[in-house]
C-alpha cells in the first residue's frame, strides 16, 4: 500500500475513514435507537392505514366489505353520483355546512373582537370560558339534550335545526382561532393608524381585519369541516326527509350494507386531505408575513 505523505504535514493525516465508519461516526454518543424508529414506523402505519384502506376498497366490484377488493371498477362511484339518496345527502351536507360555517364565522369573530376589547376583566375571562365550554362536552350529551328539546321546538329533521345546531357547535372553534390571531395583535398598530388620521372604523377595516383575516379564514374552514363531518347530533335530529352525508354513510353500514360508502369515504378522504395539504403549503409559505405567527395555533376539533 502506498501512502502519499505531503512534506509540509508533520504528523501523517489519518486515512480517510470508510463510508461505513463515517456513518458510524456521524452518530454522536446520543443516537436515536433503531428500535425507536421501528416502533415509530409501526405507530405511523397504525395511524394512517385505516384511513387509506378505503381508497382501494372504493374500486371494488364486490358488494360486500371484504378486503382485498375484488377486481377494479368504478361502479361504486357511478352508484354514488346517480343514486338520489347519496346525492341528496351530499347536497344537504353542503348546504348545512355552508350556512352553519357562515353563521359561526360571523358570530364567533364578533365574540372574539368583543372579548378582545374587554380583555383583562374577570367577567370577560368567565365569558370566554363559558363560550368555549361546548368543546369540552361529549357529543352524545349534547346530541341527546338537543334532540329532546328540538322535538318540542319542531326543529328535528329540518334544515334550520341542522344549521343552528352545527353553527352553535362550530362557533367555539372560530372564537378560538380568531382570539389567538388577536392574541399577539399589537395595539400600537391602531394608535399608529389613528395618528395617521384614520377613524376607529377605518382602522378596523384597514388594519385589524387584514391582520386577523387568516384567523377568521381558518376558523371558517374549521367550522365548515366540523359541520360537514358532524355525525352524532345529525344521527339524532335526522328525519327520513332530511339527512346529511355522514348519516347516509352510517345507515349504509348499519342498515343497508351498501358498499357505496367506500366511494363516498375515499372521495371525502382525498378531498379533505387535499384541502389541508394546500392549506399547509400556503401557510408554510406565508409564515413570514406579519401577524401570521399568532394565528398559527388553533384547537383540535372534537372527535366522536
Amino acid at each position: 500500500m502506498t501512502t502519499l505523505v505531503e512534506p509540509s504535514i508533520e504528523v501523517p493525516a489519518p486515512a480517510k475513514p470508510s463510508l461505513l465508519a463515517r456513518w458510524r461516526n456521524r452518530r454522536s454518543a446520543d443516537p436515536t435507537p433503531v428500535w425507536l424508529t421501528v416502533v415509530g414506523t409501526f405507530v405511523a402505519l397504525y395511524l394512517v392505514l385505516p384511513t387509506l384502506i378505503v381508497i382501494p376498497m372504493s374500486f371494488s366490484e364486490a358488494t360486500t366489505f371484504v378486503f382485498p377488493p375484488r377486481g377494479h371498477s368504478l361502479w361504486l362511484y357511478r352508484n354514488f353520483f346517480t343514486n338520489d339518496r347519496w346525492l341528496d345527502s351530499l347536497r344537504n351536507s353542503f348546504i348545512v355546512a355552508a350556512c352553519a360555517a357562515s353563521i359561526a364565522t360571523i358570530v364567533g369573530t364578533s365574540a372574539a373582537l368583543g372579548l378582545h376589547q374587554l380583555r383583562g376583566r374577570r367577567s370577560a375571562r368567565f365569558m370566554q370560558s363559558a363560550l368555549m365550554f361546548p368543546i369540552l362536552v361529549p357529543s352524545i350529551v349534547i346530541a341527546t339534550a338537543v334532540y329532546i328539546s328540538f322535538l318540542r321546538w319542531h326543529l328535528v329533521g329540518t334544515l334550520a335545526g341542522y344549521v343552528l345546531a352545527h353553527a352553535a357547535l362550530a362557533t367555539p372553534f372560530v372564537l378560538a382561532t380568531v382570539t389567538s390571531a388577536l392574541g399577539t395583535f399589537d395595539p400600537t398598530y391602531l394608535r399608529a393608524s389613528a395618528s395617521l388620521g384614520a377613524s376607529p372604523w377605518r382602522s378596523f377595516l384597514t388594519v385589524t381585519l387584514p391582520l386577523i383575516s387568516r384567523g377568521v379564514a381558518t376558523g371558517a374552514v374549521l367550522a365548515f369541516v366540523t359541520s360537514f363531518d358532524e355525525v352524532v347530533i345529525a344521527l339524532f335530529i335526522r328525519s327520513p326527509r332530511f339527512q346529511t352525508l355522514p348519516v347516509q354513510m352510517y345507515n349504509s353500514v348499519v342498515v343497508e350494507i351498501d358498499p357505496t360508502i367506500a366511494a363516498s369515504s375515499s372521495l371525502i378522504v382525498v378531498t379533505v386531505s387535499l384541502i389541508f395539504l394546500v392549506a399547509l403549503l400556503v401557510n408554510s409559505r406565508r409564515t413570514s408575513r406579519p401577524g401570521s405567527a399568532n394565528n398559527r395555533r388553533s384547537v383540535v376539533r372534537r372527535t366522536r
Binding site: P246, Y250, I268, V272
Partner: peptide, 12 residues
C-alpha cells in the same frame, strides 16, 4: 385521524 371524516375512518 383528524383529517379524515369520522365515518370514513370507522368504515376503514
Amino acid at each position: 385521524p383528524f383529517w379524515t371524516s369520522a365515518l370514513a375512518r370507522n368504515f376503514g
